[in-house]
Write a protein that binds this DNA or RNA. Structure first.
Lengths: 212, 212
DNA sequence: CGCTTAACTGTTCAGTTGAACATATTTCTC
DNA sequence: GAGAAATATGTTCAACTGAACAGTTAAGCG
């Protein structure tokens, strides 16, 4: 019963709002919706809007023009900053070290909304056996609960590296997924900066691709 | 000289508009911009807006409320449909076979704006040596110019498969990037549905992950 | 010194917009 | 058949909004 709590008309109006926003960049006004559906009164639209809002399909800023917000836009898409390299710790994640942004919806990125999400561009082949390549953008979450086997970004000697977090005999170490790279056993503290939740790869054109 | 054609003030106003849109979901009105910057008149805002529009940093719908559009929103983010399986050909890419959407910015996805972009969920390990895993979402472009070495989605016997396109002795075939899978030499026609331009992977939690 | 451009003020105006009120009809369930 | 919910109408209103007009001030340039 949770699947569709909307009547056909309600769904139509929600879809119209979403389509308009996607295509024109702005949400329609109540009167525009009214004319599109041929209502003689805009009050009908008002009623639909409040119903959709009550059911959680729509959000809005009261008493403002074209201030409808589809949760699709507001909740799902996250704008993730890409850091080239994190210099010291989470404290220093400033605007200046941002290399760019990836924008993708939270669902396909696996992001929980409580924790902070950021991205790193992978350098080197140390995780190639985990199918993470040089140049890939790895999306991480600043989380507390790191589990055995998670791929994490960790701070070692002022450098950020991406490794697999392995707990063995009660002691954690960082495992490279490439026989050519050494595993890292932390001398004292292991500073985890984020847990990998997703990956975005930009496929290079053949001409510029490295031969393997 | 192409880098920054904006004065400090112009840049500030553009950034304010973009930030507001990102955080609140709606673009600010001229008066909201006015009060944020402490202008005594909204005409100042009007002038900035037309300057930004003239320089191509802003788009808008004339005479409509909150109808500013930042090209960031309109141009860069693309909403890509994910098809679970393409049954017959490009002609049958209907709404019904859509499994979901990924939304990400065109830049990180490598998408050119002329060709149609779509996505497929990868099934099986046949491309594992190309570091494409089971469950990955592969973003493809419906392009004409397939090059030797490109990873493509092709239609073989009514099934869509992801393989590497290899041209040898003037004849193309489809190569699996896994020794356990056979290469496919087309009997007659080779129907390329799209060329891989990008990849999105949702990292599974350790508990649900397959042991290898 | 003129000329241009950027930055800004003060005011008016018409069209747009969300909201509210009172009421009517249909559809469905109990 | 009563009641609830969904659907719809008609109208009025205050607030919001973009746009325009007519100016001012400062900086840079040749």
């Amino acid at each position: 019963m949770i699947k569709i709590m909307l009547t056909e008309r309600q769904r139509g109006i929600l879809e119209f709002i979403q389509t308009e926003q996607r295509e024109k960049g702005i949400t329609p006004s109540t009167r525009e919706i009214q004319h599109h559906f041929g209502f003689a009164s805009q009050t009908s639209v008002m009623q639909y809007i409040s119903t959709l809002e009550r059911k959680g399909f729509l959000d809005r800023h009261a008493r403002k023009a074209r201030a409808l917000i589809t949760p699709v836009q507001k909740v799902r898409i996250t704008d993730i900053p890409i850091y080239g390299q994190i210099p010291a710790g989470m404290a220093t994640l400033t605007e200046q070290t941002i290399e760019g942004h990836v924008s993708l919806d939270a669902r396909s990125v696996n992001a929980s909304k409580n924790s902070r999400t950021f991205a790193l561009r992978v350098r080197g082949d140390s995780m190639i056996d985990a199918h993470v390549l040089d140049g890939d953008i790895v999306i991480l979450e600043d989380r507390k609960d790191v589990q055995n086997g998670d791929i994490v970004a960790a701070l070692i000697d002022g450098e950020t590296t991406l490794k697999r977090y392995v707990m063995e005999h009660g002691r954690p170490y960082l495992k490279a997924e490439n026989p050519l790279y050494p595993n890292l056993v932390p001398a004292r503290e292991l500073r985890i900066q984020g847990v990998m939740v997703s990956l975005v790869r930009k496929q290079m054109p053949v001409s510029r691709r490295k031969r393997s």
